[in-house]
Simulated assay, not measured.
Amino acid sequence: MYNIVVENIYLLVVITLISVLQNAFFALKVEKECNGLQKNPAAFERVSCANRNCMDSYPTFLAVMWCAGLCLSQAPAAFAGIIYLVVRQKYFVGYMGQTCQSTPGYQFGKRILFFLFLMCIVGIFNYLLVRFFSSDYKEYVETITSAASALLLIP
């Protein structure tokens, strides 16, 4: 029983742990700029704001990634999660330069969150179809979702 549960969530766990490491990296950047606050207060303000923005969207990301992985399919949800972490890194680094450099990362991140949200809705809808109408379309939806997750790479 334990192995079946772990097989269904291990990719989501790995992505979550990577995101925790990324959050630690962001916190270290803020701390580093805080120590040099007297030298460049504008840099501290940018890094601090980028960190706050990333932390504001973090619970939403975790919620939709886990829901999508549990309700529908683990692999596409984990793939979207790793792409989201790359985009979030791009956003953070872009924000440290000039705020206009972070806009593409922000918009791409919104698109990934929307994809994960749609996965959640489709998974819940499929569950309701199975529960009330005995119609299971999970295999078809998983195939479509796996193919559609590759489309996330298109800018």
Rank of each mutant, 00 (worst) to 15 (best):
V5A: 14
L17F: 14
N3G: 06
G81C: 07
N3K: 11
T143Q: 14
F92M: 00
C67R: 02
N40A: 07
G81I: 07
G36W: 01
G94L: 13
T99N: 06
V130M: 09
K138F: 06
A80E: 10
L153K: 01
R131N: 10
G69I: 02
A147S: 06
S134F: 04
N53I: 12
I18S: 03
V122I: 13
A77V: 07
V14D: 03
S48Y: 06
V141P: 00
I144M: 09
A147H: 05
T143W: 14
A77C: 07
F115G: 02
C120D: 13
K29T: 00
N8F: 07
M96A: 02
A68I: 05
C67Q: 04
C49R: 15
I144H: 03
P76S: 15
E33H: 09
N3E: 13
P41D: 00
G105W: 01
E31P: 00
K110N: 12
I4S: 04
C100I: 15
S102P: 05
A68R: 03
Q101D: 04
T103C: 05
I82Q: 00
M96I: 00
S19A: 09
F108A: 09
N53P: 01
G36E: 14
L28V: 09
A148Y: 08
G105V: 04
A63N: 03
Y2S: 08
S19T: 13
Y84Q: 03
N35Q: 14
L85H: 02
A63M: 10
I9Y: 10
N40D: 15
V86H: 03
N35A: 12
G97E: 11
G94N: 08
Q74D: 10
N23H: 05
V130H: 04
C49N: 07
Y127G: 12
A42V: 13
L85A: 04
N3H: 13
L153A: 08
T143H: 09
M65F: 04
A43W: 00
M65S: 03
C34W: 14
V141H: 06
N8V: 08
L17C: 13
L152Y: 01
Q89Y: 14
T145Q: 02
V86D: 01
A24S: 06
Y91M: 08
V5Y: 11
Q98A: 12
I18Y: 03
P76T: 15
A80G: 05
L151V: 13
L128K: 03
N126W: 11
P104N: 01
M1R: 10
N53F: 02
F114I: 06
M55F: 08
E142Q: 14
Q89R: 05
N23V: 09
I82S: 04
K90L: 13
K39Q: 08
C120F: 14
K29W: 01
L28F: 14
A63F: 07
A63G: 11
F117H: 03
G123E: 10
Y10I: 13
V47A: 06
G97R: 09
G105F: 02
V47I: 12
L37W: 10
N126T: 12
R111Y: 08
I154M: 08
I82R: 00
A75L: 15
V141E: 09
E139N: 10
Q89E: 03
L70I: 14
C49A: 15
A148N: 05
Y106H: 10
I4R: 06
N126L: 11
L152P: 03
F133P: 01
